[in-house]
Design a protein around this nucleic acid. Structure first.
Lengths: 399, 399
DNA sequence: AAACTTTGTTTATCCACTAGACTAACATAG
DNA sequence: CTATGTTAGTCTAGTGGATAAACAAAGTTT
């Protein structure tokens, strides 16, 4: 928990902080008794009892039957009520839309995916509404209902959740947040796809155990989500992580961004398919899915292409390691499906070039949530927000 | 203020937090009355009175005479007691040693610089002791004496303040912290030179007003200090910011680190002097100082060399902007002395290539503290540490 | 001089945490 | 089955620090 700027410290803050500690303890160590919470968190038994009662009233936790005795009175076990509310997360891709309805632990309750091509903003908006409403209808009865809707988009999102630019969708300056807020009247979060993916993996996927995680979203382009000291770093305007346009080849190929030698010209899906055009393969096999099929069938040229891409991925990841000294780098998004061929050349490049001391305690993994990282990530933002606000509000709402 | 892991919230924390708020208010807005502190910080008048009394007892602040009346009783003005203690900061360079004694506001009270060449570790240690003892002797009488010693080194420092590797000094695995702790019995901080420089500029120099500042220490090599969300980011083992070994030219020139095309091969002092060797200039003018002199005299070849270096600096800084979306990038260390010739090509490169939205609210500056960034930075670490610990201790020490 | 303002202290009250007593509910030994 | 010991959870009194409001001090304004 962190204090917002210019806020003073008082008993309110203390209670909120401790309540959050207790809730977290229960969430990640359930089932657990009040006594164990007290001794593990370091709070007094009475304090824990009182906070637990609050949390029970708010339906954020519940009591299950008595647990095993360890030589005395049997404890009442407490569990996090993952069904106290549900969160909607939407991954809005360039030619697909993936919506999930999750409980408060990120378990998927309903999932809906549609694909499309070359739709206008209005048409996509309609599809988005349909998806959200489908998910809303599928929400089970629960104390808090749908606690928020999050949308991950392949573009630049500023501090006020405005979509400044989504090149592959041809969007500019779109205030999707306001539209959704008016229509659904729940908290809305709009976030860059890579940031969301990073948050998804950090909360529910491969990054659960680490504090410094860099998520490389390798899709048509490359975006990067930065989890530093356990929380998402967004930069001063929300534009951090544009590592796709990091120069790895001075005086290299021209990029549409105006720069030369950008990483994503060498290591993205786009780079892969462009190279594939030069090969002697059927034109309907020149997309990622086609190339994967060909590689599965042992096409050496295509496999070499994947390996080259893996190598270039390694160059950028080596830079990432030097810059951030992370505990973990996760490769996600579309290219993660080609782990099989990317992994070895990537690891080889890093092993060869990364400074020796950087290679200790370093882990390079592929996405665990696969195509769901982003959708689960934005769902996680809402959940996080709900839990902290909920704890605050009920503090003041008490008579 | 941030809570350390696994700590609970109680009255103590509240008091510490508020005391810190009050002290900061006085420090950065002095002279200021109790009443103003209360209304500006948002605390009750009585609370402020009590906290101010604590701070007075600890000599961290003092009362000056009465201020101007604004229609009622005249206020008693409070000021931060910058002379409550002094901090020693040492910049241990490859061939020089700069020591400063500063007050708690980073004002330099005593300064001592020596230069040397090719000394062994033991010899440098002796020089270091001499400098420290000189500074200790020059410390004025004050309530808290010397509150800490910090040393900035040109190398890799791990989480435990061990100097893992300082290539240009030929040091490996040196525990300077322990040596100094035993000898001087005050808190010791060892920090990488770039991290310290970043902290120095953030606290006392060009970066005072910003929360996301990237400090590029362009010396023999390149190191980078990262101030993210107002505090120094060190990575999971303390090895962040090795941007000197960021690849900007895949398949480029070989670096001693084992990698190819590292930034510092193109944009450091080393890069500059290596290029200078190829020019037709006297060999005793081939170091940075000589090149500066030649450039001052209008040597076109040398000026072109500086400009090329500025351009390459721009490439890396463009990467930095894409990665961090900072409010400010500061170029410091030895190359900052050549601002005159580096600035334009650097800015041109960034203006041409950085994404348009990244260029808003972005400032690229050269060091304000010039050669003193690192020394002041390590001094600042001790000060920061002293003030927070001091506030804590006196909380418990009260009878 | 009287009335008003502003500063800073004091007092009473409130809130959340702690320590420790107490009650409840179990296990185990005899 | 009873006595004793152990663990879980609640209750009570006490404490620390914050707040609100009254009050005292020291001005200015009319």
């Amino acid at each position: 928990m962190k204090l917002s700027a210019n806020q003073t410290w008082n008993h309110h803050v203390v209670k909120k902080g401790n309540k959050s500690l207790v809730l977290d303890k229960i969430k990640y160590n359930s089932p657990i008794s009040r006594a164990s919470v007290a001794s593990q968190v370091g709070l007094n038994k009475g304090t824990v009892s009182s906070l637990v009662n609050d949390l029970l009233e708010e339906h954020l936790i519940y009591e299950s039957g008595p647990g095993e005795s360890s030589g005395g009175r049997r404890p009442v076990m407490l569990l996090f009520n993952e069904n106290a509310g549900y969160s909607i997360g939407i991954d809005l891709g360039v030619n697909y839309l993936l919506g999930v309805l999750t409980d408060l632990n990120g378990n998927i309750h309903t999932e809906k995916q549609i694909t499309f091509k070359n739709l206008s903003y209005e048409e996509i908006e309609t599809k988005l509404f349909e998806t959200i409403e489908y998910l809303l209808k599928s929400t089970p009865e629960c104390p808090h209902g749908v606690i928020g809707i999050g949308v991950g988009v392949p573009g630049i999102v500023d501090k006020d959740d405005n979509i400044l630019l989504a090149p592959n969708l041809n969007w500019r300056n779109i205030n999707l947040k306001e539209v959704l807020e008016e229509r659904y009247n729940v908290p809305i979060i709009i976030e860059n796809e890579a940031n969301a993916g990073a948050y998804g993996e950090k909360n529910f996927g491969a990054g659960k155990d680490f504090e410094n995680v860099i998520y490389v979203s390798a899709g048509i382009g490359i975006g990067v989500g930065l989890i530093l000291n356990g929380s998402l770093y967004k930069g001063s305007n929300g534009f951090s992580g544009e590592l796709g346009h990091m120069t790895i080849q001075a005086e290299g190929a021209k990029c549409r961004c105006g720069n030369e030698g950008c990483w994503e010209l060498y290591a993205s899906e786009q780079a892969l398919t462009r190279q594939a055009e030069k090969l002697d393969i059927p034109s309907d096999m020149q997309d990622l899915e086609g190339l994967v099929t060909l590689a599965e069938h042992g096409n050496d040229e295509v496999i070499a292409l994947f390996e080259q891409t893996g190598d270039y991925l390694g160059i950028g990841i080596n830079n990432i390691i030097n810059i951030f000294n992370p505990q973990q780098v996760i490769i996600g998004n579309r290219l993660a499906s080609s782990e099989k061929w990317l992994k070895d050349p990537l690891n080889k490049r890093v092993a060869k070039q990364a400074l020796w001391f950087q290679q200790n305690d370093l882990q390079i993994d592929f996405s665990e949530l696969s195509t769901r990282s982003t959708a689960l990530g934005v769902a996680a933002f809402s959940i996080e927000n709900f839990l902290s606000v909920s704890i605050q509000q009920n503090n003041t709402a008490q008579e």
